[in-house]
Design a protein around this nucleic acid. Sequence first.
DNA 1: GCAAATTTGTTCGTATGTATT
DNA 2: CAATACATACGAACAAATTTG
Lengths: 275, 275
Amino acid sequence: MATPKYRVIANDLRSKIESGELERGGQLPTEGVLQKKYAASRNTVRDAMKWLINLGLVQTRPGQGTFVVEEISPFSTALTGIPVLPEELEAGLGGERDAYAAEVSAQGRDPDQQDPTVEIQKAIGVAAQELQLVGESFVVVRHQRRYIDGAPYSLQTTFYPMHLVEEGATALIQAQDMPSGAVRYLEEKLGLKQAGWIDRITVRPPDQNEAEFFGLAEDGRIAVFETFRTGYDDALRPLRLTVTVYASDRNQFIQTVGRVPPIQTPDPGPSGGAG
Amino acid sequence: MATPKYRVIANDLRSKIESGELERGGQLPTEGVLQKKYAASRNTVRDAMKWLINLGLVQTRPGQGTFVVEEISPFSTALTGIPVLPEELEAGLGGERDAYAAEVSAQGRDPDQQDPTVEIQKAIGVAAQELQLVGESFVVVRHQRRYIDGAPYSLQTTFYPMHLVEEGATALIQAQDMPSGAVRYLEEKLGLKQAGWIDRITVRPPDQNEAEFFGLAEDGRIAVFETFRTGYDDALRPLRLTVTVYASDRNQFIQTVGRVPPIQTPDPGPSGGAG
DNA sequence: GCAAATTTGTTCGTATGTATT
DNA sequence: CAATACATACGAACAAATTTG
């Protein structure tokens, strides 16, 4: 058998979905109907369904049926202020707190975040690496859950070297929102200005916490964005590491360089094909 | 039954993988062994395996067995030159051709790309939208496949408004590499300087072409990054749209703002948890 | 509100095909 | 060639979720 039967069925349905013969949000024939149509057993039809589910083309609802997935209008997150000007850099831009609320509001949505949880941990993994901590070092870890219009938006974790607290930035270990942003606080308190930062964007499957928070299918089908932002002071010493996780099916990142027209919330649509 | 048996099996194996009891690259017990161990039928054991495959934790090799997946060291692609300085913007930076070769070489790897294929198409979808073309407009479409160390790296498609060709930029419709970059060519030929651009980064399942090119599993388990870069001239008119697709399991994006230390190829490692 | 019908989810058994050792 | 291990395919039964009557 050249191509397995379940793949033949899946490919046939796939082309009907992509051609529009089966509408977005529309229902597929039930398993029973497909069995007769393709002269296949129920298990084989179900294997075809699983394939389409993995491709992100359909979803099943027990007791109801199988449906073509609807398009999600993604939320746009700016990697940098729009646009990045030297004056802004001078001002020590790069705090996520203000940027978040401003950006969400600008897109006509309602930002919300809970009070952070704060822990002190031994520095390990990326935190130790990015903050250049060696030996027995400790970090202040601030977690925060963010919502937009009441729906989960991001999980953010920021790591600060513990020595910042010892040097006087004691608010870092208090489980309270920092309305003006931690970056600004560090500048006011310790005179540490964030001179720049490095962003790293990756994609990976969600862990169980993340799947639950974002309401993603537990099977890890939908990946999450993970961004790492390491901020540096004037002496190019790392100030903080912020790790933010977003669901990849409803978010996109925007960034501008130089002079550009005003940004309008974009509609993804068909790409026209890079293949 | 609270949790299905296949999920119980999968969760048990998952914890053994995440705890390190089962090593990276190591082999899992065969289906037959797992049947006896969990007192389950072969199909149920296989359902557990499918779950772990979807989570990206294991892979199966017919005739050999099931193995814990190995970590992939990601390649880093810079969204912007490092760092972005006003002088660079003045120079009309933003051509992908030079940036690609320079960046790959900088990471000690060998860049390679084939001659582009060139088509002329009616402007539809994102191309029409981003290039602000209305009615019956046409675009020059240049496809390019890029490789690093011989391995597939990216699929790039750039759309130029057809009127640029009519105004004299005839090299755009020739299926040849443009060593100095199309952006520079447009400046030399038509005096059109790219004053800035907007990047948009999204993630989605691969289509069949992409899965084949990147050697991804056909089941769409591994997503692809899709970046949209729209370049604008001095008058803020769109010059071009470049759509680039990368495999998400072996690539990450880096971007710097302000003053930062020299970038070293980062090792992702465990995040320390944003959950 | 309840019962029946419909639809997908889980589990077992079995047989045969294909890839690798 | 034989043994091993995963892949495909069929049939059957019961469970769980949802809609319908």
